[in-house]
Design a binder for these strands. Sequence first.
DNA 1: TTGTAGGCGTTATCAA
DNA 2: TTGATAACGCCTACAA
Lengths: 340, 340
Amino acid sequence: MAVTIKQIAEMTGVSRGTVDRVLNDRGNVNPETEERIRKVAAELGYSPNRAGRALAAKKKKYRIGVVLCSEGIEFFDEVLHGLAGMEKEASDYGVSIVVRTMRGYSVIQQLDIIEELSQECNLLILNVINDARIAAAIDELYERGIAVITINTDIEGTKRLCYVGSDYVRSGATAAGVLGLITGGKGTIAIAGGSESILGHLKRIEGFRDELAEHFPEERIAELFYTEDNDETAQKEMDRVLREHPEITAVYISAAGQIGVCKAISESGRNDICVVSCDRTPSVEKLVKEDRIRATICQQPFTQGKRAVELALQYLINGIVPEKERYIMKNEIRIRENIE
Amino acid sequence: MAVTIKQIAEMTGVSRGTVDRVLNDRGNVNPETEERIRKVAAELGYSPNRAGRALAAKKKKYRIGVVLCSEGIEFFDEVLHGLAGMEKEASDYGVSIVVRTMRGYSVIQQLDIIEELSQECNLLILNVINDARIAAAIDELYERGIAVITINTDIEGTKRLCYVGSDYVRSGATAAGVLGLITGGKGTIAIAGGSESILGHLKRIEGFRDELAEHFPEERIAELFYTEDNDETAQKEMDRVLREHPEITAVYISAAGQIGVCKAISESGRNDICVVSCDRTPSVEKLVKEDRIRATICQQPFTQGKRAVELALQYLINGIVPEKERYIMKNEIRIRENIE
DNA sequence: TTGTAGGCGTTATCAA
DNA sequence: TTGATAACGCCTACAA
């Protein structure tokens, strides 16, 4: 049976209040008493009971604000489910969650939303746009005592509590590994990137290239084009590339536009082309089941949402700063047989 | 802000005790009062506060017993970590966990341990041996009011609360999918099974065969042999098979014995052979990094341990019977790039 | 510097 | 059939 503050108080002959002051560094305790209490607590391996803390914390009424650049992007549905699934638990702790979504990547708009939410929130979970102004905003929030957790995208070097999301370089490397295995190390590849202005997309491509260079030297990248995360552009570009490079045997889609790419490939009749993509949206799942995408590399979107809130609650309720600076998701490989 | 029993009591003009009696079906309440309370609770969307429950539950002192056939099997280390990680949370709920491990699959021994633990436990988490006597024991525990959750292995048709573990058929199918992709649908395969007497091993092979038959008709299975989960046998048998079937291009290892199989392959100089295995132990991780195993199919052992305890706590503390009868883990595909 | 007391939400016990 | 009350472990305001 775990030790409680009450027990420690009895054993050291002081009141619960004094033990609380020592264990939570609230000061105003006689050094000798303090030492005695610390010793006993350490010996008995005291660790606060979460339920008790949760209950006591309810009086505080904290609020978490979430900002996602998610509108029109299927991928984020799972992140939102992860967040929603934590709402009951948060509410049990007296913490409410408010989610604000935006479409596209307007820095000005994101700054506005952040400013607005910061008025009523104690902690923000931000799907940040990679821009110096946003970085500055994070540091300013820190000064104002509002903690920030970045989710899905990160800006390193800021005073955020931590980052929860994918390691994009590793995602690209995993895609390279899968593609290398399927093509037997000898393929001619087209890369369908997302947008040149999105850091994660670039990192995936970097990871993909480096892994190929290191482990599959005979793979050749014939072309890199951008889908702008949209299926029409994807289809048009893929069509062009297939014409200009009939020697292509594989395609790596490192962002959205999967449907467009696959359509162009079917229409060209090149069903032997090996396609590897990212993420698992309902449409990608369909393409995998139809064998038009051989494998897709996922980044646990549900867990991203869930974990971010868990860390936020720990911080708000128990004052526990996250152990790690980066909480990195698994890169899950899904093929027809395990996509469910 | 979520509604509490206290608020409902005030609104309906009764005491908290009465509301509690209604909401938890304890009887002894005037039908009219009951209806009024139920109506208000439903309207306000009452849902009990977990922290409050946890605290109140502490007086009960429940105990969970765990039995694992894990000795000498590296795979279970992760399951044990998953269990251990829940100990603090369980203790916060006043629940203690006692783990008993055994070596091998003696039904008699397992029955003894079950009997012993059942004296002091309210719920058992069992890594069951597939035997009618064990099935009978589960049903008997049910009669005695001791709930059972099966973990990693299951006996269907018994009165267990639920099963937490892998879908072995699906695991085999996923291995077939990976192997089919790597060998381009044309390979000559040897299957290194574990033991003929372990149901999961047989199911993996069944899933593997069926998936090959359905999606990779040109793959051929040249031989099936058993490693008895031990590396010497594995090496000797693999060596024999390589001699008798020089045409082999791929091996599926569906249980333990990975080191033995890989050693035989290296010594034969056949480094072109594509090996796919199951699970990720430190030794398998090493083999994957050395490119001697191309891919390995994992079953979230850590999560198995964790989830089983979570479900047990829900049942003991909140009386919540698991929603599903089977909690099936993901079949994770790990290759050099994402094995970590 | 220290102790006391009340409350967070739920449950259990005892009294009415 | 009901209500009052005391726990569970923690935190905090206030009193000493």
